[in-house]
Design a protein around this nucleic acid. Sequence first.
RNA 1: GCCGGAGUAGCUCAGCUGGUAGAGCACCUGUCUUGUAAACAGGGGGUCACGGGUUCGAGUCCCGUCUCCGGCCCCA
Length: 663
Amino acid sequence: MAITVTLPDGKELELPDGATGADAASAIGPGLARAALAVEVPGAGNGDGPEVRDLARPLPDGARLAILTDRSGPQALQLIRHDAAHVLAAAVTDLYPGVKISIGPPIDDGFYYDFEFPAGTTVSEADFPQIEERMRAHVKAAEPFERQDLAVAVARERFAADGQDYKVELIDDLVSAGGPDEPLETVSLYTNGPFTDLCRGPHGPSTKSIGAFRLGSVAGAYWRGDSTRTMLTRIYGTAFFSKAELEEHLERLEQAKARDHRKLGRDLGLFTFSEVSPGAAFWLPAGTSVYNALVGLSRQMGSERGYSEVKTPQIYDSELWKTSGHWDKYKEHMFLVESEGREMGVKPMNCPGHAHLFGARRHSYRDLPVRFFEPGLLHRNEPSGVLHGLLRVRHFAQDDAHIFCTEEQVEEEVRSCLEMAFETYALFDFDVRLELSTRPEQRIGSDEMWDRAEAKLLSTLQELGLTYELNPGDGAFYGPKIDIHMTDSLGRSWQLGTVQLDYSMPERFELSYTGADNQEHRPVMIHRALFGSYERFIGIMLEHYAGELPLWLAPVQAIVLPVSDRFNDYAAAVRDGVAGEGARVELDSRSESVGRKIREAELRKIPYMLVVGQREQQDEAVSVREHRAGDLGSMPLKEFRDRLRGELYSAALKPSKSSERRA
RNA sequence: GCCGGAGUAGCUCAGCUGGUAGAGCACCUGUCUUGUAAACAGGGGGUCACGGGUUCGAGUCCCGUCUCCGGCCCCA
């Protein structure tokens, strides 16, 4: 008896019946046999993708297979990181008797394992050297990963006897997930050295494949992500095939720290934080300049697209929040104040104010859509533990707009919101991801309303041919939404823009417009923010540009640097001339060397440095140095002004309504 | 909010087992009059996050609070 398998190059390989992935690798060549980590075979059917399996498992006849080695990319890396997680658990169980293990998967750039340490034991990064040493011993010993398929009851008994409650719970859940129709008979266990774990696999042949690893940090994590359950101790680490790759990875992390917006904000003098108002930025003049440039862009793009700017109050009687539903669903995140016996709430969102404003006047169907824009200041009492630089604050402003329209206008409005969002992000070269978030458990409004709203968002996404991720249960309490996400310098994902469809608030505020039939009708409300919050957007943007803001956003666009204070008068004239082009320009008239002035201007990442001395004064010229590009040489002042005017104009973003729509 | 860690000058940090707080940069003053990434000299600046405790004596040890950092839960 023999089986035949097909290799990636199309060649067929004949192997004895019962041959394993390891046998296939040896049959191809001894080098591959040594390098092989696992084997990829077609999935078990039911539409799954290919399945990665241990080398030691028998191959199915007729399979098209691929042997994974250290050169197989992310899949192979994931495999050894999963291996490394088990080695971490082995080391920790060696060192901390009585520790309970839970789960330890590979993640994007590493792995983690969650433990419950015995009462009174805490683990910190100071313990890493010891744990890593133990891990190294296990890796060096080249302990094989051995799979064992055990009857459910046997496995359960084994973990129960060991006091491994989390594993017992996992087995019980696997059993109930299987259901009565397809009862689960066995579970797989993997053993490496002294350590055995409940694990679906696959794993590499032995711990030896883990070329280089490093523990990163320790953190708390709720068991099963549930804040009502035990807080476990999570140890993060990463692993690579070679020491060089690990070093490279650590180097990248180091560099990422240099573009952390919190550091850039301080170094560039944009904003600062203080204990006197946790979660609220203090914007310095330079930062305020950037902030205002973005608000200006919102205003300009909005007014070109039929938005009207409005202003609504900061503080409202609790009655308004009861009407909007925030009192029930959001109160704990609101700042409350009391005034003359009235309970008031500081607004965490603009929507109720805008709904009230819409309702304050009569509207005809001819007026719709009504689009209210307000870069409104919001306060949300976020839990202290979630605050994070500009990316998560308590005090911020959104580029918030609410569109009141007819049922028929919804798709067109959602579409133009998305198009406007993409035009906005294109200005910053942002590469964003979309998520469609559907009805959450905590919600208001009928199921029919949710059906309708979700269907409309879905159809618009499909019509525009946009790819998106589905995020079930993550909608706002009043409606489903399309969220726009971006990652920060360390790969953490943050939501920026959002487009939310809301049938509920118009109902609660009893909003209406007069239709062509002279009857009252209920408008639909669309909530949208494209930047999301200016704070978060600026944080992400700083990291995206590593602080090198494009000319139109730079707080100081040009700085004049006289070579000595004998030329301060000419330098002032240059400054005034350049300012005449509408540029933000400074003069550095200090009695310092030109070298120092240039160095400081470079560190401030100012786009243009204009060096002036004897020669320039004589010729009415400036010597232009461009940030990063270096010395561009001397040119007539007039020529520089023309150049700057052109760049400011083209960069001043004049997106027009007629600009091509993005497909 | 939860788990762990940290808080010394504006910034980056030093300060061993408790014995009266230090460096570089930044800032101020003076000299230099500077040509494409740091001139030279001098000077000011810290209730060592805050509050309690132990001690003859606390930046250092203990407790509490606040803030920040890394995650978790949550979120724009």
